[in-house]
Design a protein around this nucleic acid. Structure first.
Length: 966
RNA sequence: GCCCCGGUAGCCCAACGGCAGAGGCAGCGGUCUCAAACUCCGUACGGUGUGGGUUCAAAUCCCACCCGGGGCACCA
């Protein structure tokens, strides 16, 4: 305990009475908690038996139902935990413990996501190897978490940096590398089957030639072109100041690195990429089958960004130019085209007299940062190339413009502009005085709601329109010799007619476009998984055989990236692994004799380990397999026993974590899992069947008049204001963090209150999904509750049991059964805050009775301890033992309510007149509607209130209330 | 700008469309004490962000607006 912490309950006053020896306070709690934590560890209480593999104990698995509960595993940061971190861990622990008591074989474990940039940055700053630092951080977090009393299976606590773990990360990479996506069967298949398909002609080669006519190099590139992991030249976020490329989420909005604040440049480099786009449809469709919060599904849907439309080819002097549009039906209204400044045809389309203007525009567009370019409040800009393309549907010449509102990264980087039906095109046309022909007849209301005279047919005049018309409307001016949309009334009809025409004339086809991009998968760092890839003498990637795994990170003397000028965007990065020539240049026998190879010197991104870690929890010590198939099927197989393709997907039964991983981690992990499913390595088609997002624990922060944060723990509240060292300070609400000086650590809570109190406070302060402020001063309430529980059962001075065998009063017994019924429902629904309220209510009633009869009836005490144990396991174990049990309470069946005691013999009915309560009637439970009505009408107060009036209507809700309408 | 989530007592939060209050903190009164802390007992406080609507009945359902938190943002 810290020296500055006052502990009144332990103060030893010589002038006054000491506190009782066995009062439940922080020091007694710590004594109890540490003893039980040691005991659980010794007994392996939370070790979950597997049906097969190295951890097999089939007799213990028996026919118990299984439950796999998972937390998003932490990054072992040097700062350790604050009280916000354990919220989800406590919740899953409570749920897991509850389910153990209802007969489940529960798997609950926690590992560490320990590769990553922060450890590497820390290593560079201190000169200490990242492994040393990472292991120290993991040790510290383990210590902090152990004191929480989490019922984890310690054998399954893996770290992504363990060689025995990343060996399998590399193994999975090889599976991805050695697979291709079969668009017909809509699944990944081994690359050998692609080769067979090419060879027997069932799959066409990229250029259509026969397989036999291709040389070795051509065959190789035909295969590489379909691999799910492939090398590509792609623009990346290159940060010379850090000597590495960065993920998008590591770059700030103003184009600098999150760490170090160095400039970040877009640079094209040869990178490993994963073909996640081939799974776009399945990643989207299978969301329907998952039990996830709707907002998270929506975020994934938006990220995948599916839109249906068509590709349309426009003839230009530089050849066909293809656009993607969601409104092919409006092609007759396409009066100009706009291409992105980065479009490859810009130069070819630019005429001599426009060259300078185009060049200036492109330079200006490059200089704009992402923020300016996407700020849609700004007026549209653009430059004419001087060239006209031909509208395929009516042969009209359409000018081609360059403008930065068209993005190279989406669709084809070129659009057909239909100003009458698209607001951006409308704005652009107005700005540059381009024609805006109408091709749909807006309905009358459209005009009237814009205070325009209604325009019909030939009167339609877009020059009077304030904005574009978007929606269903009769088509006008939309016909050519063999296509006539005029008169059609719906967009859907227009689209399908136009798509058919385009297809027939070879000018386009229906098409689906996704926002999702392939996943850039390499980093120029040290602290990550090395790729199990070498390059041969032709500089072509070759996968290593399983027998050569793991490819270990070399022990470098100096793992710093090459020091570069932060503003040097020209020089290529040199990853730290390049420095060890000994490691990099190898002679290997890959089946055709010893040859010289060069290792891949990039490493995998931090997401790699978290893409599959939950599978390794299942079988952490297996050396033959990343997971034994029978073990995976047991813990994660589809609950309906199906094949995972339709119906239940299988996967983790409950995954709890913050909303911040809504897209990246949860999408990448789903992608990898689906590949493993397609290749037959797992029986579940999704990794996480049920997802729950817990809220955040937030905190108040305080600033002095100069705006500097002051330590929140030393701020005092007086007269509705906040004071620090005699100075008035302002309060704000936000995240807990070092810079705001408002961190509260679990360690402080263990010391001041004990883990059980801390757990209860975290669970009681609000519904799990809600964010809530941390209020240290409120914690005492949960300590007092446990103190009262303890005092009801144990004499604080002597330690004598206060439990009696006499039965409880009928009233207390009924209350208990009502509480049991409610608590079970709360536990099942993760409503721990209301479960705790019911336990307090029960204990308060027990306190009354205990005082009255001089002891606590065993019939109430036993279920109460059982119900407490998931929430505050240490004190529950202690009391359970003191009541004479010699086995842990962990597997004792959770109490079940006696339904006959839930029914009251009499019910009190409020009687309302016009919705206002006038009196209450006590009516026997079995009274029927007519009886209740008669009783109500006969009541003195009702008669007085009615004052002779006859109710127009009488509503009797059985079991609820009576309402008289006059 | 668009889309989510939320607004109930001084604070954190409960409440199948049916008596606004389960629980905790803080407050107040008492108990204990020479006094205090701790303990225990008791207790006040709001009509549910605002304005409409539906209903016998609205915190709850619908519409509009205000405030707070989060996400997306020229996606053709």
């Amino acid at each position: 305990m810290s020296a500055s912490t006052p502990d009144h309950t332990l103060s030893d006053s010589t002038t006054g009475g000491e506190n009782p020896r066995l009062r439940y306070n922080a020091s007694l709690a710590q004594d109890i908690e540490q003893r039980w934590q040691d005991q659980w560890e010794l007994d392996g209480t939370y070790e979950a038996p597997n049906p097969a593999g190295p951890l097999a104990e089939p007799e213990k698995v028996a026919d118990r139902p299984k439950l796999f509960v998972l937390d998003m595993f932490p990054y072992p940061s040097g700062a350790g935990l604050h009280v916000g971190h354990p919220l989800g861990y406590i919740a899953t622990d409570v749920y897991a413990r509850y389910k153990r008591m209802t007969g489940y074989n529960v798997l609950h474990a926690l590992g560490y996501d320990s590769f990553g940039l922060p450890a590497e940055q820390h290593a560079i700053a201190t000169g200490v190897h990242p492994r040393v630092n990472t292991e120290a951080n993991v040790a510290n977090m383990r210590r902090q978490l152990r004191r929480l009393g989490l019922g984890h299976d310690a054998r399954r606590s893996v770290s992504t940096t363990d060689e025995n773990f990343y060996r399998w990360t590399q193994w999975i990479f090889l599976k991805v590398f050695n697979s291709w996506y079969d668009e017909t069967e809509k699944r990944a298949r081994p690359i050998t089957e692609l080769e067979q398909g090419y060879a027997n002609g069932s799959i066409a080669t990229p250029d259509g030639r026969a397989w036999a006519d291709l040389n070795t190099t051509e065959r190789r590139s035909a295969i590489d072109a379909r691999r799910l992991a492939y090398l590509s030249e792609a623009p990346v976020n290159w940060c010379p100041g850090l000597g590495t490329i960065l993920a998008n989420e590591e770059v700030t909005a103003d184009g600098r690195s999150d760490i170090g604040n160095y400039p970040v440049f877009k640079k094209s480099m040869r990178q490993w990429t994963m073909r996640i786009t081939t799974y776009a449809d399945r990643l989207l469709d299978d969301l329907e089958r998952l039990d996830w919060p709707e907002p998270i599904k929506l975020m994934q849907r938006n990220w995948i960004g599916r839109s249906e439309g068509a590709r349309v080819h426009f003839a230009t002097p530089a050849g066909d130019m293809t656009v993607f549009t969601t409104r092919p039906d409006t092609l007759f209204g396409a009066t100009f085209m706009v291409i992105s400044p980065e479009h490859p045809l810009v130069d070819a389309l630019t005429t001599e007299e426009n060259r300078q203007a185009i060049q200036d525009y492109r330079v200006a567009a490059t200089a704009k940062n992402q923020f300016d370019r996407t700020d849609d409040t700004k007026e549209k800009t653009g430059v004419f190339t001087g060239t006209y393309a031909t509208n395929p549907v009516n042969g009209a010449p359409v000018p081609v413009w360059v403008a930065d509102y068209v993005l190279m990264g989406y669709g084809t980087g070129a659009i057909m502009a239909v100003p009458c039906g698209d607001q951006r095109d409308f704005d652009f046309a107005r700005r540059f005085s381009l024609p805006i022909p109408a091709i749909q007849q807006p309905p009358a209301e459209w005009f009237t709601s814009r205070e325009l005279e209604v325009q019909q047919g030939s009167q339609v005049d877009t020059s009077t329109w304030p904005e574009a018309f978007i929606g269903d409307g009769v088509y006008i001016n939309s016909s050519n010799d063999d296509l006539n949309l005029d008169g059609l009334t719906s967009v859907a009809e227009g689209k399908s007619a136009m798509n058919a025409w385009l297809e027939e004339h070879g000018r386009g086809n229906a098409n689906i476009n996704f926002k999702l991009r392939d996943w850039l998968f390499s980093r120029q760092r040290y602290w990550g998984e090395p790729f199990p890839i070498v390059y041969d003498e032709d500089d072509q990637p070759v996968s290593l055989p399983d027998s050569m795994l793991p490819v270990l990170l070399p022990e470098l003397e100096d793992f710093k990236p090459q020091a570069l000028d932060p503003n040097d965007d020209v020089t290529d990065p040199i990853p730290p692994l390049a420095r060890s020539t000994e490691w990099r240049e190898v002679v290997l026998d890959l089946g055709d004799g010893p040859k010289k190879y060069r290792r891949e010197i990039n490493v995998m991104p931090q997401w790699a380990g978290s893409c599959w870690y939950e599978l390794r929890y299942l079988d952490p010590t297996n050396t033959e397999n990343f997971v034994d198939p029978a073990v995976e099927k047991y813990w994660m197989g589809p609950a309906d026993g199906g094949d995972g393709k339709t119906g239940h997907t299988g996967g983790v039964d409950l995954y709890v974590g913050g909303v911040e991983h809504a897209v990246l981690h949860l999408l990448y992990a789903r992608f990898w899992h689906k590949i493993l499913f397609d290749l037959g390595h797992v029986s579940s088609s999704e990794p996480f069947y049920r997802l729950f997002n817990q809220g955040y624990v937030q905190a108040f922060a305080f600033r002095d008049p100069r705006g500097q944060p002051v330590p929140a723990s030393d701020v005092e509240e007086r007269d509705g204001a906040y004071w620090y060292e005699g100075e008035k300070v302002s309060r704000e609400y936000g995240k807990m963090g070092k810079s705001l000086k408002n961190i509260v650590t679990p360690d402080e809570m263990y010391d001041e209150y004990g883990a059980d109190t801390f757990r209860l406070y975290e669970m009681s302060s609000g519904p799990l999904e809600a964010s809530r402020p941390w209020n240290t001063r409120d914690v005492i309430g949960m300590q007092r509750f446990l103190q009262r529980v303890w005092r009801n059962l144990v004499d604080e001075d002597t330690g004598r049991s206060l439990v009696i065998d006499a039965p409880p009063s009928e009233e207390l017994r009924k209350l208990m059964h009502r509480m049991i019924e409610g608590i079970r429902a709360d536990m099942d629904a993760l409503r721990f805050n209301t479960a705790i309220a019911k336990l307090i209510q029960l204990n308060n009633a027990l306190t009354q009775e205990s005082a009255a009869v001089g002891g606590s009836p065993r019939e109430v005490v036993i279920p109460m301890i059982q119900m407490l144990s998931p929430l505050c396991p240490h004190i529950a174990e202690e009391l359970w033992q003191r009541l004479g049990h010699d086995h842990t309470v962990t597997f004792v069946p959770f109490p079940v309510a006696d339904q006959s005691l839930l029914v009251e013999e009499t019910i009190e009915y409020p009687v309302q007149i016009n919705g206002k309560v006038r009196t209450r009637l006590t009516v026997p439970n079995e009274a029927d509607q007519a009886t209740i009505q008669a009783l109500a009408l006969a009541d003195e107060k009702v008669i007085a209130a009615l004052d002779g009036e006859v109710p127009k209507k009488i509503i009797v809700i059985p079991g609820r209330m009576v309402n008289l309408v006059v």
